Measured scan of single mutants.
Amino acid sequence: MKGKVVSYLAAKKYGFIQGDDGESYFLHFSELLDKKDEGKLVKGSMVHFDPTPTPKGLAAKAISLPLE
């Protein structure tokens, strides 16, 4: 699924993505496929991810940034 980063707290390594389906997904650095892309996780960045339901809500897994 595609989505847009709505927040990312680099110090805490987490944030949120708004998916194309309108839902909010929890984003964690550990799910970023290329850790070098962390600096690109800023508000408004477009990402691809696997939407995954968890006991705490919806989460983004296997997060990647589109090729530039």
Rank of each mutant, 00 (worst) to 15 (best):
M1V: 07
M1C: 08
M1I: 10
K2Q: 11
K2T: 14
G3H: 00
G3R: 00
G3F: 00
K4R: 14
V5A: 01
V5R: 01
V6I: 13
S7I: 15
S7N: 11
Y8L: 08
A10Q: 11
A10M: 10
A11T: 12
A11V: 10
K12Y: 11
K13R: 11
K13D: 03
K13P: 00
G15Q: 00
G15Y: 03
F16H: 04
I17G: 00
Q18H: 11
Q18N: 08
G19L: 02
D20H: 08
D20V: 09
D21F: 03
G22F: 05
E23N: 15
E23V: 10
S24H: 12
Y25C: 02
F26Y: 09
F26R: 03
L27S: 01
L27D: 00
H28M: 07
H28L: 06
H28N: 06
F29R: 08
F29D: 03
S30D: 10
S30E: 09
S30Y: 09
S30P: 03
E31I: 03
E31Q: 11
L32P: 00
L33D: 04
L33A: 07
D34L: 06
D34Y: 07
D34Q: 07
D34M: 06
D34F: 08
D34E: 08
D34G: 04
D34W: 06
K35M: 08
K35V: 08
K35T: 08
K36W: 09
K36V: 07
K36A: 13
K36P: 04
K36Y: 08
D37W: 08
D37P: 02
D37H: 08
D37K: 07
D37V: 08
E38S: 07
E38K: 04
E38Y: 05
G39V: 14
G39M: 13
K40S: 07
K40C: 11
L41C: 03
V42N: 08
V42Q: 11
K43R: 11
K43Y: 13
K43I: 10
S45A: 15
V47W: 04
V47G: 01
V47F: 01
H48T: 14
F49D: 01
F49Y: 05
F49P: 00
D50T: 15
D50G: 06
D50L: 15
D50E: 15
P51N: 04
P51V: 09
T52S: 13
T52Y: 15
T52H: 14
P53C: 13
P53M: 15
P53N: 13
P53H: 14
T54Y: 06
T54R: 06
P55H: 09
P55T: 10
P55A: 11
K56L: 09
K56Q: 11
G57F: 04
L58F: 08
L58R: 10
A59N: 06
A60C: 03
A60G: 04
K61W: 07
K61M: 10
A62H: 14
A62Q: 11
A62R: 15
A62W: 07
A62P: 02
I63Q: 01
I63R: 00
S64A: 10
S64R: 14
S64I: 11
L65A: 06
P66E: 14
P66W: 15
P66A: 15
P66F: 15
E68L: 13
E68W: 11
E68M: 12
